[in-house]
Design a protein around this nucleic acid. Structure first.
Lengths: 133, 133
DNA sequence: CGAGACTGCTTGACGTACTCAAATATTGAG
DNA sequence: CTCAATATTTGAGTACGTCAAGCAGTCTCG
């Protein structure tokens, strides 16, 4: 079906853009995704679930982000097995920049009227139901 | 903006699904994408452009697909620098399977009425303009 | 309480993919 | 023919993906 192909193209385009924005800051796609998830401190395990990858994978990604001072690990007082990942000041700033650049690249979103916006949201949700965070 | 987040989730979901379908056949995401592009014989260079990756990268991916008998290289008679990648019979069959499984997983698409389908297509095109193939 | 099951994180081995620079083979322009 | 440009490959180095194994902390239950 033609619509499916268009969906594929749209998804590819979205990630090309995302990867390009991240790359400007010397971040990989995964590193960018992870930073974007850290609105609040998050156990490694949760990050693995959200990124749909193995926990052992998260260790390396966090290591690299931490080495660059964008995140740090902190102990979870309620369960000493758990380490929570938290953005540093610099990490917060980076996330803000990425978000705003992403928005400004999605010029198509700006042009939508209120009604189109609602439709788009409804259709997206229907075709690709969001996973609860 | 909330819509941007939903877009991100939708794109992520699309690829999770795609990757899962590919993985059932022991293919990676990139290998699946490449197979999907091979509707006709394609120079390595074109594949690199379509996949938005380095040409040296395509060499490896094609190598692995060829080793499994899903594609093969053939010489381009009009330019002896060029090698065209072409699906084998088994490759064609694999692509058919992947496509049909993708479709059947996107149950949300089936449920759309004619009008919704048109809207969705228009909105997708507006927000994330397709790259011409 | 204390043994065993389970969970969160890390490590190591190995394969795939990405980038970059360099080498080879052809092509095309002057 | 010479030189610039193009198509592909190779090699080094990094990031990421899986999987199996290990350690520490938590939980359940006799």
């Amino acid at each position: 079906m033609q619509l499916m192909d268009q969906l594929a193209q749209a998804a590819a385009l979205y990630y090309r853009n995302f990867a390009a924005v991240a790359a400007e800051r010397d971040l990989t796609l995964m590193q960018g995704k992870m930073l974007g998830l850290l609105r609040r401190p998050m156990p490694m395990r949760s990050l693995a679930d959200l990124l749909a990858c193995d926990a052992s994978n998260v260790t390396g990604i966090v290591d690299r982000l931490a080495a660059r001072g964008l995140v740090r690990r902190e102990a979870d007082p309620s369960d000493r097995r758990v380490k929570r990942v938290i953005l540093t000041e610099e990490g917060e700033e980076t996330v803000r920049q990425i978000r705003s650049e992403l928005m400004s690249n999605l010029t198509g979103l700006e042009g939508l009227g209120e009604e189109d916006r609602r439709s788009f949201q409804r259709l997206l949700g229907q075709v690709l139901p969001a996973v609860s965070v």
